[in-house]
Design a protein around this nucleic acid. Sequence first.
RNA 1: GCGGCUGUAGUCUAGCGGUUAGGACUGAAGCUUCCCAAGCUUCAAACCCGGGUUCAAAUCCCGGCAGCCGCACCA
Length: 568
Amino acid sequence: MIPMDPQEILSLCKRRGFLWPAYDIYGSVAGLYDYGPLGTAMKNSIENYWRQLYVLGEGFIEINCPVVAPEPVFKASGHVDAFSDMYVECNSCGETYRADHLAADKHPNPASLNEEQLGKVLKEIGAKCLECGGELTSPKRFNLMFKTSIGAGRGKVAYLRPETAQGMFVNFSQMYRYGREKLPFGAVQVGRAFRNEISPRQGLLRLREFNMMEAELFVHPEDKTWPKFKDVKGEVLPLVPNSGDSRSMSLDDAVNEKIIRNEVLAYFVWLTFKFAVDIGMDPKRLRLRQHIKTEMAHYASDCWDLEAELGYGWTELVGVADRGSYDVQAHIDHSGADLTAFERFEEPKEIEQEVVKPNFGALGPLFRGEAKMVSEALAGLSTEKVKGKKEVTVDLDGKKFVVPASCYEVVRKIEKVSGRKLVPHVIEPSYGVDRMLYAVLDHSYVKKEDYVTLRLKPIVAPIKAGVFPLMPRDGLDTIALEIFDELTRSGITAYYDDSGSIGRRYARMDEVGTPCCITVDYDSKDDHSVTIRDRDSTSQIRVKKDHVLEAVKALMDGVGFESLAKMK
RNA sequence: GCGGCUGUAGUCUAGCGGUUAGGACUGAAGCUUCCCAAGCUUCAAACCCGGGUUCAAAUCCCGGCAGCCGCACCA
């Protein structure tokens, strides 16, 4: 396959109503696109099929959260700090550098400094442009999140979400309860996310506002097995592990050889591959690449990308990451909420232990207003520290209190423990909708002597059937309109066209990926049959008009065109 | 954000200081018993935006915006 020229595909998209540069009449904005009617239909199909796999197939629950979130959410997630980079520019040659990288030798953690401090450090070491030796500007901060505010006046600092994931992490407790307190469980969200890219490029691949389909699977931290793994373990996938040797191997081998870290991850890597193929990507132009260690996000312990070979080169479409407990723990730390799952022991355990028990009768008179603080300090001491001593000194805010032995005793206490709290680990498959849609178009684009056919699978084709009268008169149009009505009433998107030559009408449908076309000709008036034409082979069969709906439905369900001939 | 190249109907493009801005494809209306972008007639549709130079700018200059390529960035 020759890689498709992206310009050609984007031109088709623009001409035929898949995509338009947004706000075109005002000069457009880089990185913003409108989906036209066909693009919208196709995007909906991709999202709906994804829901079919994740929500219906895997039982994940779907939620929908706001796009705007107050600052603390992204403080916790690390986006406010980690997602903003500092740059310096060379005054003479214009080269830009990551400011913290230049200061790496001088300061242990330059990324933690603010602009001013970092500027000082750079001055001290006399940093110059590495290219031409020119003077550098002072550091400028660039955060890739869109900032806004909630409310009037000064308002509350807020950001547009750079991923949908956080909405699911912060709702862990609600979802956990909704699912009747079981692990593992999965949640998904389909929606928009925003990144103020410095330089959006490559059409749909790097947008400032884009669509994501994200799944967060919350699992027991020590149990990353997966029941359905056994059903797919023999499946062979094209893997590119970070050890370097890319090869196709079975999921079973990949997990056993610890190339993929666990079953859950392996299963969703497989599901991702299946999804891509099902919506029409070419398996020969797909691969699963493991992130190399330095590439891995700070929270991830393993991450696999689904990549497709496109006109732009190999392109990341999906990331499947083991995020560990990073995100949930971060929100626990920042919000104080208890975002844990409770693991019930098979039998409640009785734990017997020695504790220091304060004696309030003695403490009260002795320490008065400070008695409560002292008692709390006492209760926190280990019994080893107080045993056999006449008095013990506790330290409170730098103030020392000498507490005589009469104020406490060491007792044995039996505590019943019925389980333990767990911070769940998260496996995250994160899909870029726009990239997937583009990849499907790229892999479906077939050009033969300037004749373009989009070989879209019926499942994603925006129009499922074209309906034409051979001539727009003699009653042929009436019959064709009857068929058109029947299809659309059944929920099948059809397109009626009676203008121009029949070949032109076929060509129009081929170019937008319509899988089949139904043509009413003069024979139809006599024998009530019509032709159905297959897009990819251009071959035709005749079926009775009454069987058209059934035939089109069969095609939608993936029945091959050849076997359609038998059913008429 | 930097550098290079580039912006003319929906698409591809001609133009090189004075043009009714030309063509092809697409689109629309019609003719043609018309099954694979056929033919014929008619029609619609463009100089990215803003300044400047000039008697005169699609054309030259500057700035912006957008696109492509490279660099950087990409949780």
